[in-house]
Amino acid sequence: MTPKNKFDIEEVETLRNKPANEVVPLLPELMTWMQDMNWPVAKSVVELLLTYPTEITPLIDEVLAGDDDMWVYWCLVELVPKLPFYSKLVLAEAVEQIASGQRGFDEDVIELAQEALRSFEP
């Protein structure tokens, strides 16, 4: 019920019409489809993920705590700034750590984290 390949936008669109109790368990797997936003399916996945802000916030927190530079990058670009304020509060500590340079990410990721923090203003 999740995309079969990086071109399977149709499956993501099918998930939009499913009830939340069927989609929420799939969110961790769906998050992996945004590790590379160059994949055609990635934009549709992001749009779907953003319809479940409360449920994806802990998943984003896990990614931000990890060391996958590109996945962190895409979360900071595609998800974090678009989340509601209450979700951003949950992620604030992880984003602040990245923004401070403590985590050893490259300068682009640090700058994105700093920019994401500016989006935390209510």
Rank of each mutant, 00 (worst) to 15 (best):
E22C: 00
E22Q: 15
K88C: 09
E55M: 13
P40G: 06
E115G: 10
D67A: 02
Y86G: 05
K43D: 13
D108R: 07
V41W: 12
W71C: 01
L89M: 13
E78K: 13
A42G: 09
N5Q: 02
M70T: 09
D36P: 01
L59M: 03
E96G: 11
L64T: 06
A42T: 03
A113T: 04
W71M: 10
E78S: 02
P53A: 12
K88H: 04
R16E: 12
L64V: 01
F85I: 10
V77F: 08
V80Y: 05
M1D: 14
N21H: 14
V80R: 07
Q35L: 00
I56L: 02
Q114F: 00
D68F: 11
P25V: 04
P58E: 09
L26N: 04
F7W: 14
V80K: 12
P84N: 11
E55L: 10
P84E: 09
E47D: 14
M70E: 05
A65W: 04
V45Y: 07
M34H: 04
E78V: 02
K4E: 11
V23A: 00
A113W: 00
V80C: 08
L117H: 03
V46G: 11
T51C: 07
T51V: 06
L79N: 04
V80G: 04
E47S: 15
Q114K: 14
V41A: 11
D69S: 15
E115A: 12
Y86A: 07
T51N: 15
V24P: 01
P84R: 00
I9M: 06
T54A: 15
E11L: 09
Y52C: 12
A99N: 10
D68L: 07
A113C: 01
V12N: 10
D68K: 13
E55R: 12
A116R: 05
D61I: 10
M1Y: 03
L50H: 00
D36A: 03
E29D: 12
P19Y: 05
P81F: 02
F120E: 07
E10Y: 02
R103D: 03
V41I: 06
N38S: 13
L27V: 11
D36N: 14
L59A: 06
F105T: 04
A42R: 07
K6L: 02
Y86V: 08
G104L: 00
L91T: 10
L112R: 07
L27D: 10
V90I: 15
D67S: 13
N38R: 11
L50F: 08
L59Q: 08
L83A: 09
E78G: 04
K82M: 00
L15I: 06
Q114E: 12
V46A: 10
K43P: 00
V109M: 05
S100V: 10
P19S: 11
M1K: 07
K88E: 06
E10S: 08
T51E: 14
S44G: 14
P25G: 10
Y86F: 06
G101E: 06
